[in-house]
Protein backbone atom coordinates (compact mmCIF):
# COMPACT_ATOMS: atom_id res chain seq x y z
CA UNK A 1 0.00 0.00 0.00
CA UNK A 2 1.30 3.41 -0.88
CA UNK A 3 2.27 5.58 2.07
CA UNK A 4 -0.28 8.31 1.55
CA UNK A 5 0.94 10.73 4.17
CA UNK A 6 4.41 10.80 2.65
CA UNK A 7 3.01 11.17 -0.83
CA UNK A 8 0.91 14.13 0.16
CA UNK A 9 4.10 15.94 1.01
CA UNK A 10 5.23 15.40 -2.56
CA UNK A 11 2.33 17.43 -3.89
CA UNK A 12 4.64 19.94 -5.50
CA UNK A 13 6.78 17.64 -7.61
CA UNK A 14 8.57 19.29 -10.50
CA UNK A 15 7.43 19.05 -14.10
CA UNK A 16 10.00 16.42 -15.16
CA UNK A 17 9.00 14.11 -12.32
CA UNK A 18 5.35 14.66 -13.13
CA UNK A 19 5.97 13.83 -16.80
CA UNK A 20 7.77 10.64 -15.80
CA UNK A 21 4.97 9.73 -13.41
CA UNK A 22 2.39 10.29 -16.15
CA UNK A 23 4.32 8.13 -18.63
CA UNK A 24 4.50 5.28 -16.13
CA UNK A 25 0.85 5.60 -15.17
CA UNK A 26 -0.19 5.57 -18.82
CA UNK A 27 1.69 2.28 -19.16
CA UNK A 28 -0.54 0.85 -16.38
CA UNK A 29 2.19 0.93 -13.75
CA UNK A 30 0.16 0.31 -10.58
CA UNK A 31 2.46 2.19 -8.22
CA UNK A 32 2.57 5.19 -10.55
CA UNK A 33 -1.22 5.23 -10.83
CA UNK A 34 -1.55 5.25 -7.04
CA UNK A 35 0.96 8.03 -6.69
CA UNK A 36 -0.83 10.00 -9.38
CA UNK A 37 -4.15 9.47 -7.56
CA UNK A 38 -2.68 11.09 -4.46
CA UNK A 39 -1.16 13.93 -6.47
CA UNK A 40 -4.37 14.70 -8.33
CA UNK A 41 -6.47 14.31 -5.20
CA UNK A 42 -4.41 16.86 -3.27
CA UNK A 43 -4.53 19.45 -6.05
CA UNK A 44 -8.17 19.04 -6.95
CA UNK A 45 -9.27 18.98 -3.31
CA UNK A 46 -7.55 22.30 -2.67
CA UNK A 47 -9.12 23.69 -5.82
CA UNK A 48 -12.64 22.64 -4.82
CA UNK A 49 -12.39 23.17 -1.07
CA UNK A 50 -13.39 26.86 -1.16
CA UNK A 51 -16.01 26.41 -3.83
CA UNK A 52 -18.48 24.10 -2.10
CA UNK A 53 -20.47 24.54 1.10
CA UNK A 54 -18.92 21.66 3.03
CA UNK A 55 -15.53 19.93 3.03
CA UNK A 56 -17.37 16.63 2.58
CA UNK A 57 -18.73 17.91 -0.74
CA UNK A 58 -15.18 18.71 -1.78
CA UNK A 59 -14.13 15.16 -0.87
CA UNK A 60 -16.94 13.57 -2.86
CA UNK A 61 -16.32 15.73 -5.89
CA UNK A 62 -12.58 15.21 -5.72
CA UNK A 63 -13.02 11.44 -5.62
CA UNK A 64 -15.16 11.60 -8.75
CA UNK A 65 -12.61 13.79 -10.50
CA UNK A 66 -9.72 11.47 -9.62
CA UNK A 67 -11.61 8.43 -10.93
CA UNK A 68 -12.40 10.25 -14.16
CA UNK A 69 -8.80 11.39 -14.55
CA UNK A 70 -7.43 7.87 -14.10
CA UNK A 71 -10.04 6.39 -16.42
CA UNK A 72 -9.30 8.86 -19.23
CA UNK A 73 -5.57 9.14 -18.55
CA UNK A 74 -4.43 7.45 -21.76
CA UNK A 75 -6.30 9.96 -23.89
CA UNK A 76 -4.77 12.91 -22.04
CA UNK A 77 -2.67 15.29 -24.16
CA UNK A 78 -1.25 18.74 -23.45
CA UNK A 79 -1.11 20.52 -20.11
CA UNK A 80 -1.97 18.00 -17.39
CA UNK A 81 -2.93 20.58 -14.76
CA UNK A 82 -5.21 22.46 -17.16
CA UNK A 83 -6.85 19.12 -17.95
CA UNK A 84 -7.53 18.04 -14.35
CA UNK A 85 -8.85 21.47 -13.36
CA UNK A 86 -11.13 21.48 -16.40
CA UNK A 87 -12.57 18.14 -15.28
CA UNK A 88 -12.92 19.53 -11.76
CA UNK A 89 -14.76 22.65 -13.00
CA UNK A 90 -17.13 20.51 -15.05
CA UNK A 91 -17.89 18.35 -12.04
CA UNK A 92 -18.48 21.46 -9.96
CA UNK A 93 -20.97 22.78 -12.50
CA UNK A 94 -22.80 19.44 -12.37
CA UNK A 95 -22.72 19.56 -8.60
CA UNK A 96 -24.49 22.91 -8.41
CA UNK A 97 -26.87 22.07 -11.23
CA UNK A 98 -28.04 18.82 -9.63
CA UNK A 99 -28.30 20.07 -6.10
CA UNK A 100 -29.78 23.38 -7.14
CA UNK A 101 -27.50 25.13 -4.73
CA UNK A 102 -27.76 28.83 -5.35
CA UNK A 103 -24.93 31.29 -5.28
CA UNK A 104 -26.66 33.64 -2.93
CA UNK A 105 -25.05 35.40 -0.07
CA UNK A 106 -27.05 35.56 3.09
CA UNK A 107 -25.91 37.37 6.15
CA UNK A 108 -27.60 34.68 8.20
CA UNK A 109 -25.05 32.17 6.95
CA UNK A 110 -22.13 34.06 8.37
CA UNK A 111 -21.05 33.27 11.89
CA UNK A 112 -21.20 36.43 13.94
CA UNK A 113 -17.66 35.99 15.25
CA UNK A 114 -16.36 36.49 11.72
CA UNK A 115 -17.91 39.89 11.34
CA UNK A 116 -15.72 42.82 12.08
CA UNK A 117 -15.91 46.51 11.37
CA UNK A 118 -12.21 46.77 10.71
CA UNK A 119 -10.88 47.42 7.25
CA UNK A 120 -7.49 46.07 8.30
CA UNK A 121 -7.45 42.58 6.82
CA UNK A 122 -4.29 41.60 8.62
CA UNK A 123 -6.29 41.71 11.83
CA UNK A 124 -9.40 40.18 10.32
CA UNK A 125 -9.91 36.52 10.89
CA UNK A 126 -10.11 34.92 7.51
CA UNK A 127 -11.92 31.64 7.70
CA UNK A 128 -12.83 29.04 5.15
CA UNK A 129 -16.47 30.07 5.19
CA UNK A 130 -15.70 33.78 4.93
CA UNK A 131 -13.41 33.23 1.95
CA UNK A 132 -15.85 30.85 0.31
CA UNK A 133 -18.62 33.43 0.53
CA UNK A 134 -16.29 36.07 -0.83
CA UNK A 135 -15.23 33.86 -3.73
CA UNK A 136 -18.87 33.40 -4.68
CA UNK A 137 -18.94 37.09 -5.60
CA UNK A 138 -16.21 36.71 -8.18
CA UNK A 139 -16.28 35.61 -11.77
CA UNK A 140 -15.12 32.07 -12.48
CA UNK A 141 -11.78 33.27 -13.88
CA UNK A 142 -11.17 35.56 -10.89
CA UNK A 143 -12.01 32.71 -8.50
CA UNK A 144 -9.63 30.37 -10.35
CA UNK A 145 -6.79 32.88 -10.11
CA UNK A 146 -7.28 33.49 -6.37
CA UNK A 147 -7.41 29.78 -5.55
CA UNK A 148 -4.59 28.73 -7.85
CA UNK A 149 -2.32 31.53 -6.67
CA UNK A 150 -3.00 31.96 -2.96
CA UNK A 151 -4.32 28.53 -2.00
CA UNK A 152 -2.45 26.24 -4.39
CA UNK A 153 0.62 28.44 -4.74
CA UNK A 154 1.06 28.34 -8.52
CA UNK A 155 3.22 30.91 -10.32
CA UNK A 156 1.62 33.33 -12.79
CA UNK A 157 2.86 31.44 -15.84
CA UNK A 158 1.45 28.16 -14.54
CA UNK A 159 -1.89 29.82 -13.82
CA UNK A 160 -1.89 31.34 -17.30
CA UNK A 161 -1.36 27.87 -18.80
CA UNK A 162 -4.12 26.38 -16.68
CA UNK A 163 -6.77 29.04 -17.31
CA UNK A 164 -5.73 29.54 -20.92
CA UNK A 165 -4.91 33.24 -20.63
CA UNK A 166 -1.80 35.40 -20.85
CA UNK A 167 0.29 36.25 -17.79
CA UNK A 168 -0.81 39.88 -18.19
CA UNK A 169 -4.45 38.83 -18.09
CA UNK A 170 -3.77 36.78 -14.96
CA UNK A 171 -2.33 39.86 -13.24
CA UNK A 172 -5.38 41.90 -14.17
CA UNK A 173 -7.70 39.14 -12.93
CA UNK A 174 -5.72 38.95 -9.70
CA UNK A 175 -6.04 42.70 -9.11
CA UNK A 176 -9.75 42.81 -9.91
CA UNK A 177 -10.44 39.71 -7.81
CA UNK A 178 -8.70 41.12 -4.73
CA UNK A 179 -10.43 44.47 -5.16
CA UNK A 180 -13.85 42.80 -5.53
CA UNK A 181 -13.18 40.67 -2.45
CA UNK A 182 -12.12 43.71 -0.43
CA UNK A 183 -15.23 45.63 -1.48
CA UNK A 184 -17.42 42.66 -0.60
CA UNK A 185 -15.87 42.24 2.85
CA UNK A 186 -16.11 46.00 3.49
CA UNK A 187 -19.76 46.02 2.52
CA UNK A 188 -20.55 43.03 4.72
CA UNK A 189 -18.69 44.47 7.66
CA UNK A 190 -20.44 47.82 7.24
CA UNK A 191 -23.84 46.11 7.10
CA UNK A 192 -22.94 44.09 10.17
CA UNK A 193 -22.19 47.29 12.04
CA UNK A 194 -25.64 48.62 11.21
Amino acid sequence: MTQISSLLLKRDIDQDDLDALLRQAKRDDEAAIEELCVYVYAHVYAFLYYRVPHPEDAEDLTSEVVLRVIKALKQQRGNFHAWIYRIARNRLIDFYRHRAVRYEVSMDDVPSKELSSSDDFSRQIMTRERLRKGLEQLTDDQRNVIILKFIEGYANQEIADIVGKSVGAVKVLQFRALRALREYFNRRDYEAED
Binding site: L8, C37, T62, F121, M126, L131
Partner: peptide, 22 residues
Protein backbone atom coordinates in the same frame (compact mmCIF):
# COMPACT_ATOMS: atom_id res chain seq x y z
CA UNK B 1 -6.18 40.56 2.05
CA UNK B 2 -3.88 38.45 -0.13
CA UNK B 3 -1.72 37.76 2.91
CA UNK B 4 -4.70 36.71 4.97
CA UNK B 5 -5.78 34.27 2.24
CA UNK B 6 -2.26 32.89 1.84
CA UNK B 7 -1.93 32.09 5.53
CA UNK B 8 -5.13 30.05 5.58
CA UNK B 9 -4.29 26.43 6.33
CA UNK B 10 -3.87 24.48 3.13
CA UNK B 11 -6.78 22.13 2.58
CA UNK B 12 -5.36 18.71 3.39
CA UNK B 13 -7.44 15.80 2.21
CA UNK B 14 -8.38 13.09 4.63
CA UNK B 15 -6.11 10.07 4.21
CA UNK B 16 -9.04 7.68 4.40
CA UNK B 17 -10.76 9.50 1.57
CA UNK B 18 -7.64 9.26 -0.58
CA UNK B 19 -7.22 5.60 0.30
CA UNK B 20 -10.80 4.83 -0.67
CA UNK B 21 -10.27 6.45 -4.08
CA UNK B 22 -7.16 4.34 -4.63
Amino acid sequence: LAQSISVLPKPEPDNDAVRSVI
